[in-house]
Amino acid sequence: MAKLLALLVILGLSALISGERIVNCYWGTWSNYRSGDGKFDVSNIDANLCTHLSYSFFGINNNGDIQTLDSWLDYDLGFIRQAVDLKHQNPHLKVLAVVGGWNEGSAKYSDMAGDWNKRQNFINSALSLLRNNGFDGLDLDWEYPNQRGGKWEDRSNFVTLLRELKEAFAPYGYELGIAVGAGEATAATSYEIANIAQHVNFINVMTYDFAMASDGQTGFNAPQWAIENAINYWLSQGAPADKLVLGVGSYGRTFQLSDPSQNWPGAPCRGVGGAGMYTGDGGYLGYNEICQNNWHTVFDENNAAPYAFSGDQWVSYDNVLSVQWKMDFALRMNLAGAMMWSIETDDFRGHCGESYPLLKTINRKLRW
């Protein structure tokens, strides 16, 4: 009887673990090259804050084979091995290899998906990458089918590619995820949503970047209404709620105001804001930079999002309160969980309070 009770307890715990909501932590490994307190490596990762760690990025060559984009970092410095070793800290952690990303473009992926031989090269090289390095699965981040040099056939070819990957992964128990454009305009152009959903374990919906300086005016990076519209569109097109992972950006989009006295949402801008002390790119600031700026900050209730400004600089981003709103929505909709792009721009050193305030907010809502 005691053995039976022990077995039931173990099975119960396993069920809880397997049914746990996803907290997918994307990690841009190039943050190792940032200076000062912006430098981020494996030692800065708290493995217990993630159910999945998405190691970003790998690319492909013209034959469809997956290739490293930084062999010195991946292998000479041993970042892949160190990332996989985080499973010693959290035995339930899944470490995924992420292939693609914005900088990889779309044309090579379009060619690969539409060519049987190149698809097989991709699939076989994926199996080798996962098996040889101890990864638990693959996250395919093609930005985007039928866009940026792609073609209409990408939509159906993407379904074929995912189906073949799923079949190849099945004997090994590898997970298969994808990262997708969120809004209806992008999603309707790029995806046969109901069909791709059949072949993946989860779908990371990139619910951010809804406003950019190229719009000519300030706007919110991830307003609540926009993420709700995006998720509702994916659901309406046949994506199961329990496969949708809500994206949270740990960064803000920045704008240079045309007139510093006009500093409200929708005010005219003349271009991107200045580069941050860590990230170093115009138009973009990490939350770890924003929280130290001491700019004038406003929380916009209509958009459930903050913005901040100083002089002619303006930024829209997420903070603890807006992330709470997003997680409440994810819970109401019974979504699979949340992902963060990306953990190295959260306040991981705790300069503005506790370490990882945004990632911990996600965990407090979804897991703790």
Rank of each mutant, 00 (worst) to 15 (best):
A6D: 13
A6F: 07
A6H: 07
L8E: 08
I10Y: 07
S14T: 12
A15N: 09
S18G: 02
Y33M: 09
R34G: 08
G36M: 08
D37W: 07
D37G: 10
D41Q: 04
D46M: 02
N48D: 13
C50L: 07
H52F: 09
N61R: 04
G64Q: 01
L69N: 10
D70H: 03
L73A: 08
Y75V: 11
D76H: 08
G78E: 08
L86Y: 06
H88R: 13
L96C: 00
N103P: 00
E104Y: 07
N121S: 06
N121R: 09
N121I: 01
S125K: 04
L127R: 08
L127M: 08
N133W: 04
W142V: 06
P145G: 04
N146C: 07
R148H: 14
G149C: 12
T160S: 15
A168M: 10
P171Y: 03
Y172H: 14
A179N: 02
E184S: 13
T186H: 10
T189D: 13
Y191I: 07
I193E: 05
Q198M: 10
F202Q: 03
V205F: 05
M206F: 14
D215G: 09
D215Q: 14
T218K: 01
A222T: 15
I227Y: 13
E228P: 03
W234M: 10
P240R: 02
A241N: 14
A241F: 11
D242M: 09
L244M: 15
V245H: 01
V245E: 01
V248P: 00
V248E: 13
Y251D: 11
G252P: 05
G252E: 05
Q256G: 05
L257Y: 11
D259P: 09
R270V: 14
V272G: 06
V272I: 10
A275Q: 14
A275I: 08
G276H: 11
L285W: 13
N293F: 01
N294T: 06
N303W: 12
Y307I: 08
Q313K: 13
W314K: 02
V315D: 03
S316A: 12
D318A: 05
N334F: 00
N334I: 00
N334R: 06
S342D: 15
D347I: 04
F348T: 01
P357Y: 02
L358A: 07
L359V: 15
L359N: 00
R364A: 14
L366V: 00
L366I: 01
R367Q: 12
